[in-house]
C-alpha cells in the first residue's frame, strides 16, 4: 500500500513532464486600432511570441513594440519615441491562465470558448487583465484568438491635449496566435 501511494505521488511529479502539451509561435499577429474624431489609427504586428500549455491551461505572450507597423511612418516613430518609449520598454507581455468551456483535447479538432486571466505589462506598467477568447484545435495545431480594450492612461501613457482628437483614450487590441507543437 505504502509503495502504491509513493508511486502515485512520483507519477504526479514525473508523469506530466513528458506529455507534448506545449505549443509555440514567434510569428503571432496583433493589431491595435484607435478610433478618434480626427483619424483612425491602425498598427499591425506579426512578430508576437507566445507559448501555450494546453494541459495546464497557461499562456505567456511577448509583444515586441518596435514590430508594430503603421501606415504613416511618422506615427510609428511617435508611437515608439513619445508614447510607448520602446527603447526603455521594448516588450509588452502577458502571462496568465485560461479556463475553457470544456476539456481541450489536442488530438481532436474543435473550438473552445475561453476566459483568460492574468497580468499584462505595457510601458513598464503591470495590470491585472481579464478577457474572453477562443482556442481552436486543428490537426495538432492550436489557434488562439482574443480581442480586448486597453485604456491608454492605465499604463501611464500620456496623450497631450494637442493630439487629443487624434488618439483614442481606449484602443482595441486584437490578437491571433497560430501555434505549432513546441520542441524544446
Amino acid at each position: 500500500m505504502k509503495n502504491l501511494i509513493t508511486a502515485f505521488f512520483l507519477l504526479l511529479l514525473v508523469g506530466e513532464a513528458n506529455a507534448q502539451t506545449k505549443f509555440f509561435t514567434k510569428t503571432g499577429y496583433a493589431k491595435f486600432y484607435s478610433e478618434a474624431p480626427l483619424e483612425d489609427i491602425e498598427a499591425i504586428n506579426n512578430k508576437v511570441q507566445s507559448i501555450i500549455d494546453i494541459e495546464k491551461s497557461e499562456v505567456a505572450i511577448n509583444v515586441p513594440i518596435t514590430a508594430f507597423q503603421f501606415e504613416n511612418s511618422l506615427m510609428q516613430e511617435h508611437f515608439n519615441e513619445n508614447y510607448l518609449e520602446s527603447e526603455k520598454w521594448p516588450m509588452a507581455a502577458f502571462s496568465g491562465y485560461f479556463v475553457s468551456d470544456g476539456v481541450i483535447d489536442i488530438n481532436r479538432n474543435g473550438v473552445y470558448e475561453v476566459r483568460v486571466k492574468g497580468k499584462m505589462t505595457i510601458h513598464g506598467v503591470t495590470k491585472p487583465m481579464d478577457t474572453v477568447g477562443s482556442i481552436k484545435v486543428d490537426n495538432n495545431k492550436v489557434v488562439a484568438k482574443t480581442s480586448f480594450m486597453v485604456k491608454v492612461a492605465d499604463y501611464d501613457i500620456e496623450i497631450p491635449t494637442i493630439v487629443f482628437k487624434n488618439i483614442a483614450e481606449e484602443v482595441e487590441v486584437t490578437v491571433e496566435l497560430k501555434y505549432l507543437p513546441f520542441k524544446s
Partner: peptide
C-alpha cells in the same frame, strides 16, 4: 516557468535608435 521558457526560446530584439 512558461514566461522563462518563452524568453529562452526567443531572440532578443534588435532595438534601433529611433529619432
Amino acid at each position: 516557468d512558461l514566461m522563462a521558457l518563452l524568453n529562452d526560446n526567443t531572440e532578443d530584439p534588435v532595438i534601433y535608435a529611433e529619432a
